[in-house]
């Protein structure tokens, strides 16, 4: 596993991680600023933080009220 870790070219993976971090942050900031979401807020916190990549996207599509 350690070997695999070293083999990875970080110039390739870094943009990926940055994008994921931006999505996560924007979703969380919006979640705290918004009055109400579809469904309980704590549920969305879990989805955004735990579900990789698609968690924030799910929140933006289904969590926000139009």
């Amino acid at each position: 596993m350690q070997e695999l870790f070293n083999e990875i070219n970080w110039a390739v993976i870094a943009p990926f991680l940055v994008i994921q971090a931006i999505l996560l942050l924007v979703a969380l900031i919006d979640l705290f600023r918004i009055d109400k979401t579809n469904g309980p807020k704590w549920m969305w916190i879990f989805i955004i933080v735990i579900v990789n990549i698609i968690g924030p996207i799910l929140y933006f599509i289904f969590g926000r009220r139009q």
């Binding site: 596993m1 695999l4 083999e7 990875i8 390739v12 993976i13 943009p15 990926f16 994008i19 994921q20 931006i22 999505l23 924007v26 979703a27 919006d30 990549i53 924030p56 996207i57 933006f60």
Partner: peptide, 30 residues
């Protein structure tokens, strides 16, 4: 926030396959 998350989501979707197919041997090994 559509101007933030839609482009980012499409970027992730578009770059997922080039990366995973490049690292396929390592992934298989792991």
């Amino acid at each position: 926030y559509k101007w933030i998350w839609v482009p980012l989501a499409i970027v992730l979707i578009a770059s997922m396959d080039p990366i995973t197919s490049y690292y396929l041997p390592q992934i298989m090994e792991a």
